[in-house]
Design a protein around this nucleic acid. Structure first.
Lengths: 210, 210
DNA sequence: AACGGCATCCGTATAAATACGGATACAAAT
DNA sequence: ATTTGTATCCGTATTTATACGGATGCCGTT
């Protein structure tokens, strides 16, 4: 039988110990290390241990869970992160999903679901419960409400900007003067409260305008 | 008992009729209209009918499902779209979720799930099955693999660009010459095969670099 | 009828970005 | 040991974007 080697990363000792107690009851799971912050975790991962899974708390001192996920992705590490958080905010969930988390569990998840998640992830499959998925989907579509900020033309221009067209090209495409497009751009920047195109595009994607 | 009024939008007559046959067996569901493309659908929605739900095919002539979703969002319409697609591509699913779809079903969904989805959505809740959610999550994290394209410094610079910093500001922040940053920018543009900052930021968000 | 938001256009000016060209030092990979 | 990629720097020139200013006609709301 293959042993599942895992690391626990959480800044609350009590919670860490609780997890250990729960997990030690399962023969196929072995805790190889237990750390209190992201920085420590990364050191452990970079050096010694080859673990299969890390149970990762999001809120930790020094280096939080998001930073850890980013690092792991950058390093192309083979360790699979399971996020354990107390927040059900859709934002967090979507962020973790994007950043390569294999699962997102709440701290009040029951034992059986935790074990199921661990085993599922160990097999290389992701595990996001129905409730968690729902939260995330709701979040993903949420921002749309606030988008009456831009007029129809402005939205159109924004779309073309994001495709890499210059002011001149957009003007040609829409059969208007470059000055008009410049004015539109200025107004768009003001409305979205950004100072240049780069920030504009980022914000626009964030609030689902593109 | 409240009747659920729905519209069917699909360019395949056979499929449309099949849906009608299935749905007419359920007393709580009433089909108020059946259209063959997105354009027709939008006309129907804008004028006459007040329907609760539209069963929306993605691939339709004149105006596809994505465009319809966008329009509905722009109009702030109260009709709830259920996407019915034959594609399981994560890209499509994520896009629909972002664009406000209340559900994403496959064309081979069985009757009971279809009915369940309709009733769930009618209550104002979204319905994305476990398999569909999984596909989407996999997609969301997928791009990460291909991100060794940029070097560490380039990634850092890209991040600062996306925050709206100019070349000069970035140079100051990183204690290097503006020329260096300019070179980085040039290289980043080349690597991601885009021609300016706007397109760059869009692409970077698409492939999860930011 | 008056007002505000929108789309359209213009002038002047500076700041920023991109396109070419080139160079060196270092580390990692082959 | 040679090559490849990264990070660093520079020159010259053009193109784009942004910051100010101002203007008009139109449409929908009040």
């Amino acid at each position: 039988m293959n042993e599942i080697k895992l690391i626990i990363a959480d800044d609350h000792e009590l919670f860490r110990n609780g997890l250990v107690e729960i997990l030690k009851k399962h023969d196929d799971i072995k805790i190889v290390k237990s750390v209190a912050d992201g920085f420590e975790l990364m050191n452990v991962i970079k050096e010694e241990v080859d673990a299969d899974i890390v149970l990762l708390d999001l809120t930790m001192p020094k280096m939080d869970g998001f930073e850890v996920l980013k690092e792991l992705k950058d390093l192309n590490a083979k360790i699979k992160p399971i996020v354990i958080s107390m927040h059900t905010v859709g934002n967090y969930i979507a962020k973790c999903a994007r950043m390569g988390a294999y699962s997102y569990l709440l701290k009040n998840t029951d034992e059986s679901e935790l074990i199921f998640a661990i085993r599922t992830v160990y097999k290389g499959k992701k595990y996001f419960s129905a409730e968690i998925s729902e939260k995330m989907i709701n979040f993903m579509s949420a921002q749309s409400v606030s988008d009456n900020v831009l007029s129809k033309k402005e939205t159109e221009v924004l779309g073309l900007i994001s495709k890499g067209l210059t002011t001149k090209e957009i003007a040609a495409k829409l059969f208007v003067s470059s000055r008009t497009i410049e004015t539109h751009r200025t107004n768009i920047l003001k409305k979205l409260e950004v100072k240049n195109t780069a920030e504009l595009i980022k914000k626009a994607t964030e609030i689902n305008l593109i």
